[in-house]
Design a protein around this nucleic acid. Sequence first.
DNA 1: GCTTGCCTTGAAGTGTACATGAAGGTTTAA
DNA 2: TTAAACCTTCATGTACACTTCAAGGCAAGC
Lengths: 144, 144
Amino acid sequence: MNIKEASEKTGVSSAAIRYYEKESLIPAIDRTPVGNRDIDDRIIRRIRFVTQMRAAGMSIENLRRYIELFDAQEDNTKEQKALLQEQLAVMEEKRDDLQAAIDHLNYKLKHFYDHMEATEEELRQLEKEHANRTAQKDETPEGF
Amino acid sequence: MNIKEASEKTGVSSAAIRYYEKESLIPAIDRTPVGNRDIDDRIIRRIRFVTQMRAAGMSIENLRRYIELFDAQEDNTKEQKALLQEQLAVMEEKRDDLQAAIDHLNYKLKHFYDHMEATEEELRQLEKEHANRTAQKDETPEGF
DNA sequence: GCTTGCCTTGAAGTGTACATGAAGGTTTAA
DNA sequence: TTAAACCTTCATGTACACTTCAAGGCAAGC
């Protein structure tokens, strides 16, 4: 398959595929007699792996480090494991930060919702907010 | 508090705080008589809000859109809700992508682990992998 | 034989989110 | 009073991850 088809199949632009090859995130791609890239399913899978890890926030640099180890023939199992675990820790922290932010936004949404539904409770609400304002220390007032 | 203290308190560089102010991600900061920024807890909270949303992947641009709506005096509740929900969807998708990548890496780690522990099972392992190789269609072989 | 549409390479350009540097003002401590 | 340790603005620089451009090759169809 040519690069355009591979691009359509993976959702990664032709230019990005060339870039990934140049940066060794994917193996050197076979060429047709005239020099065009001839992309097979092995490459497609590796493009998808790159896409997934990129989406998860792994940098090009770290990806290359990992893939270099993986492609080397020596037994790098320990280094690979260490690298994976390192990356895993980064990603889990990211996920947790993300979850915290999601929780924050959900809380705010609920708050908005209350506000919109509770017209008849407005005074009570205002009173509560005033009580909060006078009592609060570090509890994210004014919605932030 | 001056900008350096605020920077230490939030972990955001002085330059970044100035940048956030210029980009209206945080309100205009009060100045001392000589023109230095005088940062109070309200600003600190808003810097932290920015930090959290940035860590969650919200762009400067989207953050500004949201904050503009929030700071405007008209009733933007609906737009705010919509914007929050939009962002929430983006973040949940990110979280899920991240989780998928974490699962992928965990799987690989387990695989490495098996490989290291299971020297006596090597042949069985190889046989299994061969069976996989002949049967697989799109299941990420060769570790990717 | 010329247009269309794919491909190639290498170099240069783009957008985001800051970081850094220059040039200078003010306060504090020795 | 002079040095340090802050601060200011404005301009330029940097890193990352591509994207776009320029110049050209090859193959098919009209």
